[in-house]
């Protein structure tokens, strides 16, 4: 079975590192880390992910801008994006996650189990 490719974008290396370790440990996913959002588009073009997990608040280029850049690229426009955000409370999202403007937002901190459930749900669509 082909592993699904996930691009993890966060300016905090320990988070992308642990996302990679946790997701790859399931045997279902291949994860590429990107800690510089300015290089996220190039990384996505090269890696051709099935899903992108991105932080929202990052220096220089925010997660929303990264998603907009992906949508402008014909080869990447259909790639779903999950936003991980530390800038909102779970109460503000109405739960641990919420779909806002067609994007799934998950409030940090989240556990791996919740993240895996969200990834499976999105990739099965």
């Amino acid at each position: 079975m082909t592993k699904k490719r996930i691009l993890a974008i966060d300016d905090e290396p320990s988070i992308t590192r642990l996302l990679k370790l946790n997701l790859e440990q399931t045997g279902l996913y291949e994860v590429r880390e990107e800690n510089f959002s300015t290089q996220a588009l190039d990384a996505a073009r090269e890696f051709k992910p099935d899903l992108v997990i991105s932080d929202v608040m990052m220096p220089e280029v925010g997660g929303g801008e990264v998603a907009a850049l992906l949508r402008e690229d014909p080869a990447l426009r259909r790639v779903p994006v999950i936003f991980l955000t530390a800038a909102v409370r779970k109460e503000e999202l109405g739960g641990p996650e919420a779909v806002i403007a067609g994007r799934l937002y998950i409030a940090k901190p989240l556990d791996v189990k919740s993240l895996l459930a969200a990834i499976e749900r999105i990739l099965s669509k």
Partner: peptide, 17 residues
């Protein structure tokens, strides 16, 4: 809050791993 949640996220992901 943003600065605190990021290390918390690392800790949670690390524990899960």
């Amino acid at each position: 809050a943003h600065e605190v949640r990021n290390p918390l996220q690392t800790i949670l992901l690390g524990i899960d791993f």
